[in-house]
Design a protein around this nucleic acid. Structure first.
Lengths: 222, 222
DNA sequence: GTGGAGTCCGTACCTAGGTACGGGATCAAG
DNA sequence: CTTGATCCCGTACCTAGGTACGGACTCCAC
């Protein structure tokens, strides 16, 4: 009886909800099986259940559905090798480590603030409120130092990068950008990434492409 | 002189976009100032700029806009004390630490998989794909609670199996091994069978015994 | 007085990963 | 043959934190 399972049973087998399977179908993560002739109910092969379990496990490893789609494509690509998978995993590990670093920065700051706070008294004596209200530019905005040059062929542009939470991530993007020819300086200010570049060598689109190829998103781009 | 700033200038001062200020207004995080009589443009007091900076700093500490709303409410509550703020910060620290722990689990799992993956050969020999495709009930969360020293209890070993002529036999042996408790990954590369296992659960001798009980011979064993 | 920059306001859209609703069809048990 | 459970399918909604668009004003400088 290898005919298959109804969607409800398949969902139970795979440990997800019915709606989730339908959602994955819409996302083209799993194929929608046909209804056997004469019936009105689709039957899912155990293959699909396997596939859903694969998706769930990959999610636990931090992969997004889009990335999982790639992994699944690799899986059915005869030309794909172990190295392809490994590369994906390594990139994801990088990604996760960056996130950890970011959270550790936050954790450290919170610890310091909590330690500095007496925990009693009014708000005007509260170190935490104080740090948040204070007018200084320090805190976490680590960088600055934008040179003020005026050269005819130098131009600067500011991108607003969506997923750039902290200084460490900013350093990563800075490295990438500075490898591009024509990039003279990269700085971060008020939520914007400013790039000073030589317009004879490179243009805005290529800069944007470099940023996006590192996994960052630019607000309002594309 | 200036009774306030236009929204554009206020945005620049605060380091956000104009749309962001409008968004915060809709979210009731900042008040919408009136238009001075006779004019058509709203003027923002520097207070609002301060408030936006507060919001941004609190965001950098990991607070959500909803939580920031509470912090702001505290700030203008005469009955609120330092302890209230401290409690919020402590709760957030907890929260952040939990997230770090979660990411560290993921990181540990990825490290193990990458270590177990030879990075060459086809996908059928890929430890990573394998772990994702395997359908054992214990999910990927096998490596939790062991902190950062990811490989504390995991060890890998390589056997050279003499009568392992083809991929199908390799699959067979893999199945056998994966039924053993404590076996995390099995991969094949360059004539060797590599096994990643939990040394608290199983040891090399039991792995060897499992292989030999399936009719395979291990080179240089016994 | 004109052009361009900025503002106002409402609304729609975006990411990710689903969840929920509703009306109609179908299926299995009693 | 009915009843209750499922299934089908399209569509809307949810969270969070904004971003974008577009038409109509308004403001400032030249």
């Amino acid at each position: 009886m290898a005919a298959g399972l109804t969607i409800g049973r398949a969902a139970r087998e795979a440990g997800v909800g019915v709606e989730t399977i339908r959602f994955y179908e819409r996302q083209r993560l799993v194929a929608q099986p046909p209804k056997p002739q004469g019936t009105g109910v689709r039957l899912y092969p155990t293959d699909t259940v396997e596939r859903i379990r694969f998706i769930k496990k990959a999610q636990e490893l931090g992969f997004s559905l889009r990335e999982i789609q790639e992994l699944l494509a690799l899986r059915s690509d005869p030309a794909a090798g172990c190295a392809d998978v490994r590369d994906r995993a390594t990139a994801k590990l990088e990604d996760v480590r960056r996130k950890i670093q970011h959270l550790q920065n936050i954790s450290g700051m919170l610890e310091q603030l909590i330690a500095a706070c007496l925990g009693s008294g009014g708000l005007q004596a509260c170190a935490i409120m104080d740090a948040l209200s204070r007018h200084d530019a320090d805190d976490m905005a680590c960088c600055s130092a934008s040179g003020r040059g005026s050269d005819a062929s130098l131009k600067d542009v500011a991108f607003r990068i969506e997923n750039l939470p902290c200084g460490d991530c900013a350093s990563a993007i800075k490295e990438v950008l500075e490898k591009e020819p024509g990039v003279k300086a990269v700085s971060f200010d008020k939520g914007e990434t400013r790039i000073l570049y030589d317009l004879r060598t490179i243009d805005k689109e290529r800069l944007a492409a470099a940023i996006e190829s590192s996994g960052f998103r630019i607000a309002g781009h594309q």
